[in-house]
Simulated assay, not measured.
Amino acid sequence: MYSPQWIDLDGVVNMRDLGGLPTESGEVVRHRRLLRSDNLQDLSPEAIETLVTRFGVSDVVDLRTHVELAKEGDGPLRAVVQIRHHHHTLYREDSTESGIPAAERALPWETDERHEAAAARQLAGADAAHRRSHEEYWSEHYLSYLATRPDSVVAALDAIASSEGAAIVHCAAGKDRTGTVVGLALKVVGVPDELVIADYAASAERVPAIMARLRSSTAYAANLKDKTVTQQSPTTDTMRLLLRTLDERHGGALGWLGTQGWTRADTDRLRRKLLGDRG
């Protein structure tokens, strides 16, 4: 039975500790080793103190794009000298070299959404059975992270494995990009599919609060204007489909990682980090 270990701090609405999840071999993910969250821009000084002293946060793995960083600016954790920051965008077209300042560009997924809308219009008269479901759309979207930015996915996992204390993985909402990277990390150390799926879907509980928070930011407000809670909510079938596709195409998460240079030594490092007696 999965029960989310929510961390309710001022400035975030979707932060939780992955500690307590059992593996198929009977081990347990340790508390205060891997946290996941929505973006950290609004953390209060008291919340920062809690993360540093109570949770022992040493590393932040930021999956947001260059565009988001430019639009939102440095978050308050950047001022904490003992915390290492790792930025790994999951969008191929998100580059610092486009010639257009990042703060003036559209969010990378807005282009994807325009293409999706055009495809939907073309299919308007087609049989409904040929249209992608909500789950298929999102699982394919997550697979695109692996296809277009495998370097960032592997680097994010390496940052978790190499962290001295607790690592926080986050994006904007803390459900899609974060859910993909965290799901892979949990699979590498042997957490069963059903618990990986349950953790992924737990963010649905916080989607109304996530959307309210992001709509207060100029970086995301326009993009979220016409989106609904249902459209933005993760479902168990989305992650189940993603894991099934990895199994069928690559022999699982470790099989895919192996094609990207991930080694047994890397797996052992991540296992020691998340399961061992010491971080």
Rank of each mutant, 00 (worst) to 15 (best):
L186T: 07
P4R: 01
G258C: 04
G258P: 04
V153F: 07
S95I: 00
E93A: 14
E93L: 14
A159E: 11
D59M: 04
T218Q: 05
Y145N: 02
N223F: 05
E97D: 12
E135R: 09
E136F: 06
L146K: 00
A118M: 03
I160E: 00
L241G: 07
R84S: 11
P101W: 10
T235G: 12
A156W: 00
D74C: 10
Y220I: 10
V154Y: 00
G190D: 08
A265H: 08
G190K: 11
A222K: 15
E97T: 15
E27V: 11
R269S: 11
G125A: 15
T53R: 10
R240F: 07
G261P: 01
N14V: 01
R240H: 10
A147E: 08
E248T: 15
R54T: 12
G183R: 00
V207W: 05
Y91H: 15
M15T: 11
G26I: 03
G20N: 13
H31C: 15
W109L: 08
T96Y: 15
T53Y: 14
V188R: 06
D94H: 11
L77T: 00
R54Y: 04
E110G: 01
N223L: 14
L242A: 01
A70W: 04
H88F: 13
H250C: 11
R249N: 11
L21P: 08
S37N: 06
G20F: 04
